[in-house]
Each structure stands twice: as C-alpha cells, then as structure tokens.
Design a protein around this nucleic acid. Structure first.
Length: 158
DNA sequence: GCCAACGTTGGC
DNA sequence: GCCAACGTTGGC
C-alpha cells in the first residue's frame, strides 16, 4: 500500500464538496502534468491512502484523509470543448489524461503548511521541497503515520 | 498582484 | 537534441 498527497483548490473542489458528493467520492479530473498523471496511471492502487490538501487559498494545508477508490480512467474533461481542461490533442481512442477516483474518509482540522514545515521529521516530504509544484506527490509511510497521529486519525479503524 | 520555480513548446 | 520563450503553479 502506498500513500499520496493530492492538492485541490477549495474554490474548485473542497473537502467539504467531496463529502457532499455520492459516496463521498470525486473524480480527480484536471491533472495536466505528466508526472502527476503517471502517478495516477502507473502507481496508484485502489485502497492507497491519500492526504487531501487545499492549495491556493488563505490557509494551505492538509484538511482530510481519503483513499483511492477506483483506478485511473480517461479524464472526460479533456474531450469537452467547453471545459477549462479541454485538450485538443486528445481523442477518445487516444486519451492523454487520466484520473482516479478519491473517497474522502475524514475531514480533519487543517494541518497547515507552517505547521508541516516546523516538524523536522517531515522535512523530507516532497510537497515541502523548494519549488515543488507537483499536485500529486508520494508520501513516505513514516510521514503518513506521523501526520495521521497529528490528526488523531486511526487509519486501521476508519 | 508579485514572482520564484518549474514544465512545455517549438524553432533551429 | 538544445534551449529560449512562454505558461502555470502556488505561497506570500
């Protein structure tokens, strides 16, 4: 089992928005970066743990715990000329972009960036690396466990 | 709104 | 394949 941190802008899809969706599950549409796509396409497995992160907002940070609910499938927004995420280079028989489905298990208090940066044990987190812009980053098991302990979440009994 | 950092594009 | 120009991300 692997662990991930996935960023979403709350003005687009917040953790509260996902909790209001059927099965508290959302298609992770809109990823247009190959590294992030490849994580979804090649490395994520159903059941993997996810830290739900709010970005581009007043208080960026981890706001929930989730899991991968469905393997990668073509991201339908790439085919929709009306969509902000439309990609004219994609076609139905040759999709370029994919998305997994993510089920939110718990909304948590916001573990904000400042707090994350203060913990030397989390200093190696990919999301905290200087210049990181990846919207999906792997999380080490020790980092995952530390963060869940911070949040008071017991993954095994969710 | 600024801007550092990084990814992508496209001419050569 | 190189790399300059451009676009995007995302914290501040």
């Amino acid at each position: 089992m692997k662990y991930w941190l996935m960023k979403s802008e709350p003005s687009e899809v917040s953790v509260e928005d996902v909790l209001a969706m059927p099965n508290q599950t959302v298609e992770w549409f809109g990823v247009r970066n190959y590294q992030a796509r490849n994580f979804m396409l090649r490395e994520m497995q159903v059941g993997d743990g996810v830290l739900f992160y709010h970005s581009s907002c007043a208080q960026p940070g981890i706001v929930g715990v989730a899991r991968i609910a469905r393997a990668a499938q073509p991201d339908m927004t790439q085919f929709d000329p009306e969509s902000h995420y439309f990609d004219p280079r994609s076609s139905a028989d040759k999709p370029r972009w994919f998305c997994v489905a993510v089920k939110v298990e718990r909304k948590t208090r916001c573990l904000d960036l400042v707090t994350l940066r203060r913990d030397p044990d989390l200093a190696q987190m990919r999301v905290l690396a200087k210049g990181n812009r990846l919207s999906i980053t792997p999380v080490a098991a020790v980092e995952w466990e530390r963060i869940l302990a911070y949040l008071g979440v017991d993954w095994e009994t969710l």
